[in-house]
Design a protein around this nucleic acid. Sequence first.
DNA 1: CATATGTCAGCTCAACTGACATTC
DNA 2: CGAATGTCAGTTAAGCTGACATAT
Lengths: 141, 141
Amino acid sequence: VDEDRPDLGKMALRLARAVADEERPVLAREDLEMWDYVVLGALARAPAPTQGELARLTGRDPTRLIGHIDGLARRGLVERRPDPTDRRRRVVALTPDGLATFRRCRSGVRDLEEQLLADVPAPDRATFLRVLQQLHDDLDR
Amino acid sequence: VDEDRPDLGKMALRLARAVADEERPVLAREDLEMWDYVVLGALARAPAPTQGELARLTGRDPTRLIGHIDGLARRGLVERRPDPTDRRRRVVALTPDGLATFRRCRSGVRDLEEQLLADVPAPDRATFLRVLQQLHDDLDR
DNA sequence: CATATGTCAGCTCAACTGACATTC
DNA sequence: CGAATGTCAGTTAAGCTGACATAT
């Protein structure tokens, strides 16, 4: 067995950073930062959480999320309206333009991933992605 | 094919953070922070780089590395001495105590990794680690 | 009244920048 | 003299804490 490999955490972090570095220019084409993409992605899956829930989902600080959403709303990518049933809450949702923007970004991201994994044989790639997703899903439970 | 998986970057980052969170208590047993472990690990592989080179290897800011090495040297884990051939340079090296401390930590880290991958069948695990290491190594070149 | 949500101001800490001394 | 190395002070950005207003 190979005891001489780098730590799992080091390898995973290196990969994550490399992916993020390559994604940034793609997102910049839509004039988005990484946090924007994360927030739009969360809203694309769960239609309308509260701001606190959105902060928890994305891992972003609730207080910093405020100005963040302000910017996205000013650009017409998200919408923030008071919940009729509980007026303390501000329901945040994607606009059609926001959804389209997110889809363009994710498409570009997927292209990058394809490129990054190009040298990995198809069967290995499938196994790699399956195990990674299993670990990822298990961690969120 | 599954287009509906999370982004590669998200999965890798989630894994890296989970590993780091579990490693911290293990390192704390030796009274080490994550950065200490990273620095000791770099020194365990390459015996005596300069401080600037050590900063580049670990990804840590050169200016913050100064006080950091001060602390490790005060505890007798690393040694900083001027290079006789070029007195601008400070060669940083592990002490025997530092090497032993690092090995104890890495052993604990490997135990954690074993635990985290326990549910993954052995052949899949081997493929996963092999592909991950390949990607990791390719990125550093 | 106790709780939850969103907002804001202030604090703290890590990273980066620029300047400087030493040495090559 | 120009370049590299290590050190330090100042700036900047990001996250966190606590207080407050609104609503339940």
